[in-house]
Nucleic acid binder design. Structure first.
Lengths: 218, 218
DNA sequence: TCTAATTTTTAGACAAGTCTAAAAATATTT
DNA sequence: AAATATTTTTAGACTTGTCTAAAAATTAGA
């Protein structure tokens, strides 16, 4: 069994590991976890002894196979709990992260199995992020950044790149939600803003917004 | 905010505080929490500084008003989560304790409020134990130990005194469950065992069993 | 009531996880 | 390629919660 601290470090490495060969740097992890580099080094050495990460001094870390399994399991728990909070307890999508951060560390395999069944085995959480299955496999859908759509192209809004409360609340205010069809009406070259049609309304969104929304081509 | 350890000690004192004037002893708490008396003393001094307990060296402890509020809130969370596990996730009543021990420490007032609504504001958990309301008030029903019933008296089974897995599984095996009507057919003076009628079956139960079941008189 | 047994507290140590400050290694710049 | 800047690691300290062993207080017994 692993401590909450260990699980959190593993999750951070998992999130920062960008499939490139190179390991994740100590400072990156420290920033992500709001902690100090020296604390990270201590933990990396501990995780390395437990064979959860592959770590060479000064060379960054990567998750081992075992580490990846644990990371996927923690992410699975986190996203299932977020789904529970939104679908069953009437939370909005900008309120669930901190609570799921706590719930993800509850130890019980049966609890998570039953929760998944209760939620009807969701494949994506309320932010559109994929939920790993029991074996740690991610369901993959081809989603692209809204900003990359051409004029007259359209797609279904399926996720967010930035899942901060601020951004999610902004989307709520604009009436933008997952599942909606978005068509690009015009692109403004000057500031890269977009005019989009969504749910029969026309909306102008900034370049920044367009870079933080995912759509799935139809 | 309080640590899990602090909450656990407060909960233990709450459970052991038997309404008599006298404080709860260090050893009793140590036994309940499976820890050492010296650890208990350390924690009592800490809780005392935080004004959560009233503690005088060598004289035992009692919860302060603030301590009682916290205890009730932790118990409320525990019992609501047990109810969730049984009613929504298909757990049986002998499987939920350890998981609820973890879930009771999740920090979020809204989570508990919404959970209570989702469960339709239950007043009792799956073992028949009362769930404190938001203000820490316990719903009181007059329940008595089955063993105290006279021959020909009857009542509804509403709770258990011993909620260990072993006992609960025994009740399952015997087909005894909360909500069932129990009538005492006979009492055996030799060993204080009872013959009862329950759900149209006749059953002989030992003195020990009869002392661990609560019934409500009709 | 005075001694013996029991309970409780203190003192000091340990593990996990964090921090600061300093040292060591790596990366960058000229 | 040498000097400088940056990143990472080490060393030592601190907090929380635990333990063992010894001391102090209370309770029980003769």
């Amino acid at each position: 069994m692993f401590s909450q601290a260990e699980e959190n470090y593993i999750k951070a490495i998992y999130a920062l590991d960008t499939k490139t060969k190179k390991g994740v740097s100590t400072n990156l992890i420290a920033e992500k976890m709001q902690t100090k580099a020296s604390s990270v080094t201590d933990m990396l050495q501990k995780l390395s002894e437990k064979r959860l990460v592959i770590y060479k001094k000064y060379q960054g870390v990567q998750l081992s196979t075992k580490g990846k399994k644990i990371a996927a399991s923690v992410v699975r728990k986190h996203r299932l709990w977020e789904t529970f909070l939104v679908n069953k307890l009437n939370f909005s999508w900008d309120e669930v992260h901190d609570i799921a951060e706590q719930l993800e560390h509850i130890k019980s395999e049966k609890l998570i199995d039953e929760l998944a069944v209760f939620l009807e085995n969701p494949t994506h959480d309320p932010h559109g992020d994929p939920i790993p299955d029991k074996n740690g496999e991610l369901p993959s859908i081809e989603k692209i950044i809204l900003a990359t759509l051409q004029v007259n192209e359209s797609g279904i809004c399926v996720g967010v790149q930035d899942s901060s409360s601020k951004f999610l609340q902004f989307l709520d205010k604009q009436g933008i939600a997952l599942g909606q069809k978005i068509t690009v009406i015009a692109k403004e070259p000057f500031d890269d803003s977009l005019t989009i049609k969504i749910e029969n309304r026309e909306l102008s969104i900034s370049q920044k917004i367009a870079h933080n929304l995912y759509v799935q081509l139809k």
